[in-house]
Simulated assay, not measured.
Amino acid sequence: MKARKIFITGLVSLFAGAAACAQSYPGKPIELVVPYAAGGATDVIARMVAAELPNELGQPVVVVNKPGAGTTLAASELARSAPDGYKLYMTTAAHTISASLYRKLSYDPIGDFAPVHLVARIPIVLVTAPSFEARTLEAYVKQAKENKDGITVGSPGNGSPQHLAQALFQKQTGSNFVHVPFRGDAPMLNDLLAGQVESAFVTLSAALPHIQAGKLNALAVANPTRIEAIKDVPTMEEAGVPGFNAATWFGFFTPAGVDAAILEKLHQATKKVASAPEFVSRIESMGGEVVNLGPADFREYVKAEAAQWAQAVEASGASVD
């Protein structure tokens, strides 16, 4: 009986300590890890949030860029970190793709991470070189089917969301594509603008300046609704490819096992930052949209994304050892 009383007292003390810790959180600066180099869309959005989070949390948020190995380097470090809320991770669709793309991972992209907040989504757009003759999605698909040599389609790399979107599109439409992988968006766009590559599935934020300048032709955006920044460009559904949606999303995670109260505090703080009119306007100027999903909804979103990208990886035949 005495032992049981001691055990119960210990449990009460444990939970009381956890509750007190959550109430006092954060008590020191928070590190926000970005698995990409500085200057890209993920880094820009992470820094936009990090600049305003201290106003909500009362502590500095320090952005640390740790690029490498297709985001798996930083993800591996996060998975091994303490689940105390002092290390956050802003990543993209690449996180869910890695579950199917990599044959060997030292972590579980789903089980080892607690989704905090889905901030924004930037859809993928199909664009063609200035000299390419097809000016509508219907004409593009027709040409891709009839051309025995196929249409060249660039991507920023094997296994990237853009490459996998291309593979899904090819499977759904029966198009004949020749995949041309590059090492990033910049060299791909340079060759596309020069007409060395005929088309590409591109994250809208990267292609938007060239579309607005009339240097690239946007055939359709892989989003359920039109995007204000290019409102004259139809969705894939409107253009004749039903149900085809693909986007790069930007969301916060933390190591699994974090206290629910800390998770909720981080979510509410991020939601307030991402709901500000200035923030929304900035995301829209990048061709994106603010999403603002909390932990439970974001977890379901991640599961659905992982399933979709698994199909795309299979269709593409891509894999990384």
Results as ranks from 00 to 15, higher is better:
Gly195Tyr: 13
Gln196Asn: 15
Gln196Ser: 15
Gln196Ala: 15
Gln196Val: 14
Glu198Asp: 15
Glu198Lys: 15
Ser199Lys: 10
Ser199Asn: 14
Ser199Gly: 12
Ala200Gln: 07
Ala200Gly: 13
Ala200Thr: 09
Phe201Cys: 12
Phe201Ile: 12
Phe201Gln: 15
Val202Met: 10
Thr203Gln: 15
Thr203Ser: 12
Thr203Trp: 13
Leu204Met: 10
Leu204Ser: 05
Ser205Trp: 06
Ser205Thr: 12
Ser205Met: 07
Ser205Lys: 07
Ala206Pro: 04
Ala206Phe: 00
Ala207Val: 00
Ala207Asp: 03
Leu208Asn: 00
Leu208Thr: 06
Pro209Lys: 01
Pro209Arg: 00
Pro209Ala: 03
Pro209His: 01
His210Asp: 04
His210Ala: 00
Ile211Lys: 00
Ile211Asn: 00
Ile211Cys: 03
Gln212Leu: 12
Gln212Ser: 11
Ala213Phe: 00
Ala213Thr: 01
Gly214Tyr: 05
Lys215Ser: 10
Leu216Ser: 05
Asn217Gly: 02
Asn217Pro: 01
Asn217Ser: 02
Asn217Cys: 02
Ala218Lys: 06
Ala218Asp: 08
Leu219Asp: 08
Leu219Cys: 07
Leu219Pro: 07
Val221Asp: 07
Ala222Asp: 00
Ala222Val: 09
Ala222Gln: 12
Pro224Lys: 10
Pro224Ala: 09
Thr225Glu: 13
Thr225Asn: 11
Arg226Pro: 08
Glu228Lys: 15
Glu228Met: 03
Glu228Val: 04
